[in-house]
Write a protein that binds this DNA or RNA. Structure first.
Length: 654
RNA sequence: GCGCCCGUAGCUCAGUUGGAUAGAGCGACAGACUUCGAAUCUGUAGGCCGGGGGUUCGAGCCCCUCCGGGCGCGCCA
């Protein structure tokens, strides 16, 4: 509703400008600095002042004079040096919220969002959580806006990291596949935790015994060949860890549609197809001299924006195929990106991995034809890759590859949804018993390292959050069953975690701190959940008293709404609660899930004010009581809708 | 050396395409529970938006420069 008015008003002003000045420009509306100025501010007179050589105020006056009445608008005022401030017809606005028209589903092609993408060789850590929660929330935002979205989680099951853990099992611990299988099935020590330690161990072993690196090479070869005990081990390890990651992410409500795997990219010759295309269209060339002699390279001019001279261009060019004929990671990534857009001329085979508790199906790629009929994956019109900002250079190369192949449109629709890393606050390092150098102690944060086994495991953090929330729930609701208290504590804990990961904008480094993350007060997920619980409590209490909600349509006539909304307080509350869709659009446009988190907090804050100021059930005036109840229900709906987009569940009580 | 990011209240962070008097949470201090259950609310204090120059009606935001911090720049992934 809010956006429709916004569009209607700017269209009216644009028409007026075209008629009286013969100008065609798009008029944008702003939110006035103070709410007392009205609902919208139009600064267009400032833009025109120079062009028309007139004072902004004069222009504004002439525009207002020329504008007829706009449906839904009560008044236009000139303010300051030339702002046009818009006041809405409050009763009409509220009336349209009371009888909402469903949001028109937007058309458009499929959007592929790739996120999570964790090496399947050890437990997920807090950095991975930021990736998955950002990606999942962005998906929810797009879906809330009516877009069709496919969620991919790429699995690098044949890479160095998996190989290293396999080296650990095979060479260091001399374990057979059967013995490793027993470890996977053992309930007392989670397998992903065991691999976390093993990976750190083999990494430090390489340091002291560089000759052991031949094991890695042999293992990689065995994995690629796909046969023998080592290949079997690699499959078992990767599959078990992927299963663990999926369980961890499901705890936070994160789900996927399809898992494209590196092994299929290899076996189905995706790279060969991409290589042919790249050669054919001369996007890469064979280097015959210099340091990259014998390699297929992409010239730096393809992906560097800076003005380059010819000498440095050669130095900076990116190797795609090594002189030994093997392809680099970026090369495979180009093939994968081409497949995402349906440009490769090849497809995977798919088999059902499992169905989530809610019935949603998760598919995985395979290299053999299957009897199951899978959905159509890939062939997107736009792609978002949720990847750490440290990989922006490689993402640039991938996009440059598409552009060099003359897939300009798809290159423009390839988005690196980048975010900064999650590091650890020095204080948290100390709490965890991690030894810091004097230099590190002075730093604002300390980087995590999988190789060193330095970091906070995702499941440990979630467990700790649940434990902390549980203590509060136990204290407040001793009467509830243990099982139920556990469920509520889990909802609060995961809500707190998701909100924590979303409250920062993407390019800010999070210095993870247990004290902050475990907080349930102030700008947190539980604060928002609590507001929705309170709204629910009022409605529940009403029923417990044997009353039911009034017939809002009948009681809240246009006149009644006008009377109640004459109160500036009520009007501002209603207005802020009505902006969910507007917040979603803004957050999508800027690519910032943090904007939704911020909006959720403001909405909750507004409701908590309302809750404190107006005892709804004590109200005796029938019309006012009906109005307050309607506001309560409306706030609850809007809070729940916003929480859903953030992927935060609503506890029945707190 | 080259490229990208960051610097806003004691701390952690917001700040819409440049717009009216720069905001929030935490922390500090002072208050509010016989209630719709206080994981809440109200109030106070706290700012040369890193420094300097420029662009214009107008700059936290754009340009230049300097200072401080981070991350990239491999025939690793």
């Amino acid at each position: 509703m809010f956006q429709e008015l916004e569009q209607r008003i700017s269209a009216a002003v644009e028409a007026q400008l075209a008629a009286s000045y013969d100008l065609s420009l798009s008029v944008s509306l702003e939110q006035p600095k103070q709410s007392s100025f009205g609902e919208f501010a139009i600064p267009v007179a400032f833009q025109l002042a120079r062009q028309l050589k007139k004072a902004p105020k004069q222009i504004a006056e002439s525009i207002v004079a020329g504008l007829g009445s706009i449906p839904g608008v009560a008044a236009l005022e000139i303010a300051g040096n030339g702002y046009i401030n818009v006041r809405l017809d409050r009763a009409a606005y509220a009336g349209s919220l009371l009888r909402p028209s469903s949001r028109a589903p937007q058309s458009g092609g499929k959007i592929v969002v790739e996120h999570t993408n964790i090496n399947p060789n050890k437990a997920a850590h807090i950095g991975h959580l930021r990736n998955a929660i950002l990606g999942d929330t962005f998906v929810r935002m797009l879906r809330a806006a009516g877009r069709r979205v496919e969620v991919q989680n790429y699995i690098d099951n044949t890479g160095v990291q998996v190989a290293d853990v396999v080296v650990g099992f095979h060479y260091l611990e001399k374990k057979s596949p059967a013995e490793v299988k027993a470890l996977i099935d053992r309930p007392e020590q989670p397998f992903d935790y065991l691999c976390w330690d093993l990976y750190a161990r083999i990494s430090s072993y390489y340091k002291d015994h560089p000759e052991a690196l031949v094991w890695r090479g042999d293992t990689l070869n065995a994995i690629e060949a796909g046969e023998g005990e080592i290949a079997e081990l690699a499959h078992m390890v990767a599959d078990a860890i992927v299963a663990a990651h999926l369980r961890t992410m499901l705890r936070l409500g994160v789900m996927y549609d399809v898992l494209p795997r590196e092994s299929e990219i290899l076996h189905l010759q995706f790279w060969a197809a991409a290589f042919e295309l790249l050669k054919q269209r001369q996007a890469i060339f064979f280097e015959t001299e210099g340091k990259n002699k014998g390699c297929w390279v992409m010239p730096a001019s393809a992906f560097k924006t800076s003005p380059e001279n010819d000498e440095s261009a050669e130095d900076d060019s990116k190797v795609i195929v090594r002189s030994n004929g093997t392809v680099t990671y970026v090369g495979k990534d180009i093939a994968y990106q081409l497949w995402k857009f349906g440009l490769l001329g090849k497809d995977f085979y798919y088999r059902l991995w499992f169905a989530y508790p809610d019935g949603h199906q998760l598919w995985v790629t395979t290299d053999r034809p299957q009897t199951d009929k899978a959905p159509d994956f890939g062939a997107a019109t736009e792609v978002f890759n949720v990847i750490d900002s440290r990989q922006s250079y490689l993402q640039d190369v991938v996009v440059a590859g598409l552009r060099a192949l003359d897939f300009r449109e798809q290159a423009d629709k390839s988005n690196h949804f980048s975010y900064e890393m999650v590091a650890l606050s020095p204080r948290t390092c100390v709490e965890m018993g991690i030894e810091l150098s004097e230099e590190d102690k002075r730093r604002p944060y300390v980087e995590v390292s999988g190789r060193k086994g330095l970091g906070v495991k995702a499941d440990d953090l979630i467990d700790k959050l649940i434990e902390t929330a549980q203590a509060e729930v136990d204290q407040r609701h001793a009467e509830a069953s243990a099982e139920e208290r556990r469920r509520v504590a889990t909802q609060i804990a995961t809500g707190a975690l998701r909100y924590f990961m979303l409250k920062f904008t993407r390019n800010s480094v999070i210095a993870f701190d247990f004290h902050e993350a475990l907080s349930f007060e102030g700008e947190t997920g539980p604060y928002v959940q609590y507001a929705a619980v309170r709204a629910g409590n009022i409605l529940r209490k009403l029923q417990e008293r044997g009353e039911s909600l009034p017939d809002f349509d009948a009681v809240l006539t246009s006149e009644a709404l006008g009377r109640q909304l004459a109160s500036e307080d009520f009007w501002q509350l209603l207005l802020s609660a009505s902006k969910v869709n507007s917040a979603v659009d803004r957050a999508i446009a800027s690519g910032e899930p943090a904007h939704i988190a911020k909006y959720a907090f403001q909405l909750a804050q507004a409701f908590n004010n309302f809750y404190h100021e107006y005892p709804v059930l004590q109200e005796t005036d029938a019309e006012r009581r009906a109005f307050l109840l309607w506001m309560t229900r409306y706030f609850r709906e809007q809070l729940l809708a916003t929480l859903h987009i953030l992927g935060i569940e609503q506890p029945p009580y707190m």
